[in-house]
Nucleic acid binder design. Structure first.
Lengths: 120, 120
DNA sequence: TAACCTAGGTGCGAGTTACACCTAGGTGGT
DNA sequence: ACCACCTAGGTGTAACTCGCACCTAGGTTA
């Protein structure tokens, strides 16, 4: 099937909303549970998406060094980010319904060529 | 929001199933009614996707020159193409449900910050 | 000391997309 | 005759994105 969009951005926004604050490596572990498709999300894509979200003002970050181990860049949603998540929800609600409709149509009876055989 | 996948391929497969046979320019006119997102689908993407579907054996084409005007490359679904559409339906059914769940979660009450504080 | 886990990245070739542009048959207006 | 416009099917290419490989660095366990 190939190129299904992974919707990394909205999933990250949602995770940050739910968790309040988190960092890349931690988010990577929780992505599979919340992903919209079962395609794996690359760590590279994850980190770059977080960066881009910060550039656009949807999240803010700070370094956390007092938990031991390598430093963590801890992110949180900004108010703008919450609004952006809400926009995503609107869009995905619409797409979700379109897809459900698509599935119904795709499974509807016969093609135009072999129009309604197969009663019962 | 930017890069929402357009799902050109499954929509073309569905249109061809419904119409029996059709050609690029005609399909282009009907895409907006069946598209999964409201993002416009490029003509270039349309023609290239049809080509790729043919390369993979999901559609077959022949030239039609007896209708006046420029020649049309008329496509129809192959049996393999119908199976492929069914695969898409399965995948999109799943994605649709995941998205609906996402929307519910995204709109659920408050963020973790304002609800209860996390320990650790 | 080595192996392994956590943590956050970068480099880059391959693949994809968006926009502009091209060819060509046919019709209607002046 | 000439032009504008519609139908029809493309191609060229610069910019962008993605996937894979790879790198740095702190800390723990055997």
């Amino acid at each position: 099937m190939g190129n299904l969009s992974r919707f990394v951005e909205p999933v990250l926004l949602l995770l940050l909303k739910q968790k309040g604050r988190s960092y890349g490596y931690d988010l990577a572990g929780e992505l599979p549970q919340h992903a919209l498709t079962d395609a794996e999300i690359e760590r590279a894509a994850l980190y770059r998406t977080l960066r881009q979200l910060e550039e656009n003002g949807n999240v803010a970050s700070e370094w956390e060094t007092d938990q031991g181990g390598p430093a963590r860049r801890v992110y949180r949603l900004t108010p703008q980010g919450e609004a952006h998540l809400e926009e995503w929800a609107t869009v995905l609600d619409h797409v979700s319904k379109s897809m459900a409709q698509f599935v119904v149509k795709a499974r509807a009876a016969g093609s135009a060529r072999s129009a309604r055989r197969k009663p019962r």
